[in-house]
Design a protein around this nucleic acid. Structure first.
Lengths: 110, 110
DNA sequence: TTTGTATGTCGCAAACATACGAATAAACTA
DNA sequence: TAGTTTATTCGTATGTTTGCGACATACAAA
């Protein structure tokens, strides 16, 4: 995060950080895959995306750092799954943001 | 957008693009300010953020490019307001994403 | 016309993001 | 043990984002 971002409220920083995680289609695709339980295995995730394994691995690590997914070693494979608590937190934060936008919206400068 | 992103579905690209717009606290702050109608004037927006005018202007242009806000000249001032249609679109896309995450979430790899 | 105020653009620097081949590690299999 | 498979990290190339000072533009008022 750029230093200047720290000068905004924690709420804004949280939402911005989550939005940044969602700002690449591969990461959204991984979340959706896992929510549909089509697969949990790292290799299968990589196979379903138009990216190299190394790149998919990087995206997986980013999702892990954000707490949205967890990985577990199972033999030579690694099974990934959503972290229910943090996914719930994501949903709550996004919902709150959307709800706030239900304000008037009737600005006279249009 | 990186070239590889084009190989994902349009839905994923749309959501990722919107998330990218929201991935900086200044841009979220601007949207929230406008939704509360605390002000529409460019200068007041800049005054309420811990960033220089030049930088705020850049964020305003990004929001404009994304279609989320509109600007209108009024004397020496420029009044900004949310674009209701595209804000509604943003809300719909985010809501759909959240709803999809209401899937099972009971992955056995945890 | 000159001065001041408001806004936006340009150009640069620093930091960050994306992508992948190659190297590495860890765990099965023969 | 040697070889194979799977997953990750390393190093590197390339492009993008963020931030701001300095400049440009546009209007208003003196």
């Amino acid at each position: 995060m750029h230093a200047k971002s720290a000068e905004f409220t924690p709420e804004l920083q949280d939402l911005a950080a989550l939005a940044k995680v969602l700002s690449h289609p591969a990461r959204i695709a991984i979340i959706q895959l896992l929510s549909e339980q089509k697969t949990c295995v790292s290799g299968s995730i990589a196979d379903s995306l138009p990216l190299s394994r190394a790149t998919v691995c990087q995206h997986l690590q980013e999702l892990k750092n954000a707490g949205l997914i967890r990985g577990e070693i199972s033999g030579q494979n690694v099974n990934y799954c959503l972290d229910p608590d943090n996914i719930q937190r994501l949903k709550t934060i996004l919902s709150t943001f959307i709800t706030q936008l239900n304000e008037p919206l009737n600005c006279e400068c249009s």
